[in-house]
Design a protein around this nucleic acid. Structure first.
Ligand SMILES: [Mn+2]
Ligand SMILES: [Mn+2]
Ligand SMILES: [Zn+2]
Ligand SMILES: [Zn+2]
Lengths: 164, 164
DNA sequence: TTGCAAATGAATGTCGTTTTCATTTGGGCA
DNA sequence: TGCCCAAATGAAAACGACATTCATTTGCAA
């Protein structure tokens, strides 16, 4: 790690090393605050902005990327050897990954059909996981949805005055 | 429109009718502020929060849905008869839609493979549009990308102190 | 060692979203 | 047609995540 940092021209500070270490050890889709908490278990003097900045650096170094599930929180996802998409359970908020290799040909074709030169693909499938679907009795045909999704699962900041 | 509103139990106020009208007349992917501006051309007394609340209502009524391109702005997209995905040009920020019907079988299969009951799909292809790709000399194989995308195009609020 | 650009951390700024609350008003009803 | 009141409105404020500022510290090349 020290290596990578120095060869890329960044200083290997103890805070930075700790943050990188905690990030790599943590699960996927971690938020700034979640990582901040983890880091502080090891060194409570590390600042929030340092964690934020280093998470940005981790992305810049190609080790992670930001993910937006539309819930108002930016999550940082470790880059995987193969591109993957996300399955998001609307009930329990569980996030499962899936390999999107099989979909790539069709996606590239789609892009070319619109004369677009694709660089990245983001696929999110919202629905219900096994247990939630069963518990809620979600049988089959729920589907359909305008542009293909709904921005459900937003963190519910509070109530709407009206339109409850 | 008055009909729909009343049958659903909502009052048909002039502001509400104007907002609905402007939204339906406007292009896709409009932001609260953009719609607010359009509305004020017709009635400058309408408040910002009223536009915001009615946009939420429009979604609740199933006429639109929120779209997050990861640029920190929520856009409201008219629901289309067939689900569609988005092609997003990283250079000029142009947003083009594509019919995702052809991809649905593979997507449903993917979901079932993880025992998920799909409800909605969100597909975003980031890359370069025809003209930008040409101008920038983006030939072909750029691709690959961890979970399938990058959160590029964020509105660049300023610079980063470091990690410029 | 020394010098200095890079990095850090606390505080502060930014800005889109959401709520509060006093006031107005749509529309069911007498 | 007037009344009444829950729903709706609008201005202002609250909220909260992201981002920056700046004084101070520190990695590390020379
Ligand atoms: Mn769209
Ligand atoms: Mn992931
Ligand atoms: Zn679930
Ligand atoms: Zn373009």
């Amino acid at each position: 790690m020290k290596e990578l940092l120095r060869t890329k021209g960044y200083k290997a500070t103890p805070q930075r090393e700790l943050i990188f270490e905690c990030f790599l050890a943590a699960g996927r889709h971690i938020t700034v605050d979640e990582l901040y908490q983890k880091v502080r278990l090891k060194d409570s003097s590390v600042g929030h902005s340092t964690v934020w900045r280093n998470l940005k650096l981790i992305c810049k170094l190609g080790l992670a990327e930001e993910v937006n599930l539309g819930d108002g929180l930016t999550r940082y996802d470790r880059i995987t050897p193969e591109p993957h998409g996300h399955l998001y359970c609307l009930e329990c908020k569980k996030l499962v990954e899936f390999d999107m290799a099989k979909l790539l040909p069709a996606l590239n074709e789609t892009a070319q059909g619109s004369r677009f030169q694709p660089v990245g693909f983001k696929i999110e499938i919202q629905g219900y996981c096994d247990s939630c679907g069963e518990r809620l009795g979600v049988t089959g045909e729920n589907s359909y949805n305008g542009s293909g999704t709904k921005n459900v699962g937003k963190k519910e900041r509070g109530k709407n005055d009206d339109l409850s």
